[in-house]
Amino acid sequence: MERLNEEGQWIILMAFIISIGIFFLAIVINQSTVIGQTTAEGVLEFPKNDFQDLRSEVFNLSSIYDSSLTDPADRSRINQDIESIALLRKNAVVQYSISNPQIISGKTYVMVNLHYNNGVTSINETAYL
């Protein structure tokens, strides 16, 4: 029987090490699209812009409650505008209330209560403005 040729073992060993390295790099590339997807979907699913927009709108309303929006009927119509359009187009249950000015520690504040729930994310806020 012919003897096994034992030369070139280092070359074979190096080839192993390099191929294992390439293999792990390939796994990293393979995962990158999936990771990008979960990140992007997480960002898309969280209604950050919706809530910031709603928040600025309600805060803006609260600032004109004492000047140009004093009629309770007007206020309730605008309340219905926001609540029903948000439910129909944004699939979100929105509720807000703006209190009458109240004096707390010598300063006048308006309390704004804000609720937002789109089935996935629920945000509640109470702000004194």
């Binding site: 699209t33 990008g36 997807q37 990140t39 992007a40 979907e41 960002v43 898309l44 812009n49």
Partner: peptide
């Protein structure tokens, strides 16, 4: 992967 969607929405 919705990455471009996310950027466009922002």
């Amino acid at each position: 992967t919705h990455i471009t969607d996310m950027q466009l929405e922002q």
